[in-house]
């Protein structure tokens, strides 16, 4: 596929690889809501029960990136770049003990991207 909804920074890849080395296969799930929400969370592949209500947004370094469908309806016009920043979170996301959090930078899809991905 020529266009993607997702990208990841070098720094984030480094952290992702560290987690992979320790925990094996992973998934990303985009959270919504309170406190530590609206952030990408990374879990061991089998940890979270996924079904048709979780939309596969794409794959980053072999890691599937999911978002719940109703949230996706508002997000599908944006492109997401996964990055890391120093910080803490109280979710179960696996990067937290490393003293960093995954965060997303968003931008609107270009006309071409929107056409290719959403039509």
């Amino acid at each position: 596929m020529k266009y993607s909804r997702l990208a990841i920074t070098e720094k984030a890849i480094e952290i992702l690889n560290q987690i992979k080395a320790k925990n094996g296969e992973l998934i990303f799930h985009q959270s919504g809501g309170c406190c530590d929400g609206t952030a990408p969370m990374v879990f061991e592949k089998e940890d979270m029960y996924l079904d048709d209500s979780d939309i596969l947004m794409g794959q980053l370094e072999g890691v599937n990136y999911y978002m719940s469908e109703d949230q996706y309806q508002y997000w599908k016009y944006t492109h997401l770049t996964i990055d890391v920043t120093p910080g803490r979170g109280s979710s179960f996301s696996l990067e937290i003990p490393l003293g960093v959090r995954f965060i997303i930078h968003s931008r609107l899809l270009s006309k071409e991207e929107d056409k290719a991905l959403n039509e």
Binding site: H29, T38, M48, F92
Partner: peptide, 13 residues
Amino acid sequence: FTGETTTGQLIMQ
């Protein structure tokens, strides 16, 4: 639990 949706889902699981 008070927090966000993904962790909420995991806790329910």
